[in-house]
Design a binder for these strands. Structure first.
Lengths: 102, 102
DNA sequence: CGTGTAAGGAATTCTGACACG
DNA sequence: CGTGTAAGGAATTCTGACACG
């Protein structure tokens, strides 16, 4: 297993790397978008993969997507289901295009 | 800059990854063998490169090398000086061989 | 729904020192 | 010299809640 998958970063480092507030990061976990591990004492430990995922999430949130939609996308992404996901993909792109047009 | 160089790991994670005690890690920093960054509040932040370096250091210590020698080696290593370093290289190997022969 | 914030507590980390050897 | 440990304090993180919208 490479470094990118190791769950070792504290939430403070993740916040600095992503630019997201601690509140946002915890909330995205609460919604099941990311799954950090926990130390014996209960503190969250993230991987660099989580960091990358969070940056993607941040973009999708900016595009007006909702957490449950994003979560669905990741689920579909995993099972490589090219069907229903299309709606969200297109919706995401439309939102992005709309945003840029302003 | 890749993930390996990012100073983001707390000392606890480094301790788990390397198997070294917090005391040892702090001591090796005190001797100048590693240079973690500090957060605003003063907590150490290490990189995966530091983790790798610490595992090397641990081996050299096991081989009976002293911290100041190890430090010299890293200095020489940087300036690619192939001269005096030889003593320590050989000494390290001899110590290792000696240890295995037991 | 997504996010900020104040609140109280618990886990993590920090430093300087004493101990042993 | 290298490392363990107890000590007291400071920084970091945790959760549940109230607020706004």
């Amino acid at each position: 297993m490479s470094y990118k998958e190791k769950k070792v970063l504290p939430i403070g480092s993740v916040s600095e790397l992503t630019g997201l507030s601690l509140r946002k990061i915890r909330y995205y976990e609460e919604r099941g978008l990311i799954l950090p591990e926990r130390s014996g004492g209960g503190t969250r430990k993230f991987s660099f993969n989580d960091v990358e995922k969070l940056m993607d999430i941040a973009n999708q949130i900016e595009d007006g997507m909702q957490t449950f939609e994003i979560k669905k996308m990741y689920k579909k992404d995993k099972q490589k289901d090219k069907g229903k996901i299309r709606d969200e993909m297109i919706r995401g792109q439309l939102n992005a295009a709309f945003k840029m047009s302003k």
